[in-house]
Amino acid sequence: MSKWYKKDIADITFCLSVIKPEHSQVIKRYYSDKFLTWDHVVSESGQSNSALKTWRSDFKTSLNIILQHGDEFINIRQEALQA
Rank of each mutant, 00 (worst) to 15 (best):
A83E: 02
S62N: 09
F59M: 09
I12N: 11
S43L: 14
F14H: 03
L63D: 05
T61A: 02
I27E: 10
D33I: 03
L16F: 09
T13D: 01
D33V: 14
S45L: 12
F73Y: 07
M1N: 11
D33Q: 05
S57W: 11
I74D: 02
K20I: 06
E22M: 13
V18G: 08
S2N: 15
I9D: 05
I65W: 06
I9A: 11
H69M: 09
I76R: 05
S48R: 11
V18T: 00
S2I: 09
H23C: 14
K6C: 03
S45C: 11
W38S: 08
R29F: 09
K7H: 08
G70Y: 01
N75T: 14
K7N: 05
L67D: 08
E79C: 08
T13W: 02
Y31N: 11
D11S: 04
W55A: 14
S17K: 06
F14A: 02
Q68T: 15
T54M: 03
S32K: 03
F59E: 10
I27P: 11
A83G: 00
H23F: 14
I12F: 06
K28W: 05
H40N: 03
E72H: 02
M1W: 02
I12E: 04
L16N: 09
F73K: 01
N49Y: 02
K34W: 14
R77Q: 10
I9S: 07
V42P: 10
I27V: 13
E44R: 02
Q68W: 05
K34M: 12
K7Y: 01
N75Y: 04
D39K: 10
K53I: 01
K28R: 15
A10D: 01
D33H: 04
Q82M: 08
S32A: 15
E44W: 13
T61M: 08
G70A: 05
I19W: 03
Q78I: 03
T13H: 07
T54V: 09
D71I: 11
M1A: 09
V42F: 08
S50H: 08
I12P: 08
R56Y: 07
S48Q: 08
T37Y: 04
I66N: 01
F35V: 12
L16I: 05
I66W: 00
V41C: 05
E22Y: 15
I65D: 14
L52I: 14
S50P: 00
L16R: 10
T13L: 02
S32H: 12
N64E: 10
S48G: 11
S45Y: 07
H23M: 12
L36M: 15
F59C: 09
Y31S: 12
I66H: 00
N49K: 15
I12S: 10
S50I: 06
R29H: 11
Q78S: 13
V26G: 07
G70W: 02
K6H: 06
M1R: 13
Q68M: 15
M1Q: 07
G70D: 04
I19D: 04
S57Q: 14
G70I: 06
T61P: 01
L81K: 13
K7T: 06
D71A: 13
T13N: 10
H23E: 06
E79D: 09
I9W: 04
V18A: 00
R77D: 07
